[in-house]
């Protein structure tokens, strides 16, 4: 499969296989007009299979969202066709306005204008909990 190299933008690499589409959605990439490639199930020596997203525009990216999807992800920042920075991700301590609480008894389920906020409560287990009701969340929310 051939995908053109990009001039200015990002290569989001080492996305665990199957989470690429979710990351695409959470980053709001569907609303962009630039060239974007989502490549699924690419062979990887380290991971077996992985997903990759290439974005050919220097957009503003919320790296917390990428870290939330997986701290294993690496982001290559490309300028003028050259990698100028290779960023490692980390689990964000707080995740604001990214995912929604699924607890129907949570105050956020009836007061829609409240900002959805989750705190990292167990970094080892990758567990986030809603700051309002403490319901567990993951990237499927």
């Amino acid at each position: 499969m051939n995908i053109d190299s990009i001039q200015n933008g990002f290569v989001i690499d080492h996305i665990p296989a199957g989470r690429g589409m979710k990351l695409y959605e959470l980053l709001g990439l569907e609303s962009l007009d630039c060239s974007i490639a989502l490549i699924k199930n690419v062979g990887s020596r380290k991971m077996g299979k992985k997903d990759i997203i290439k974005i050919d525009e220097a957009i503003s990216i919320d790296f917390d969202i990428i870290g939330f999807i997986s701290p294993e992800v690496t982001v290559n920042i490309i300028r003028d066709g050259v990698i100028v920075e290779k960023k490692s991700m980390a689990l964000p301590k707080v995740l604001t306005g990214v995912i929604r609480c699924k607890n129907p008894r949570c105050i956020t389920s009836c007061e829609q204008e409240l900002v959805q906020k989750f705190k990292l409560t167990d970094p080892e287990g990758h567990v986030y909990r809603c700051v309002y009701c403490e319901t567990k969340a993951n990237y499927d929310n």
């Binding site: 607890n103 956020t108 809603c130 700051v131 309002y132 009701c133 403490e134 319901t135």
Partner: peptide, 27 residues
């Protein structure tokens, strides 16, 4: 007291006086 979990936290974030949670649902 509020049946919705987290409502007293929302109140505390907005109020200019102390808020005591007297029970928020099953939380």
């Amino acid at each position: 007291r509020h049946p919705r979990e987290g409502a007293p936290l929302v109140a505390a974030n907005a109020a200019s006086i102390p808020v005591i949670n007297a029970g928020d649902g099953g939380h």
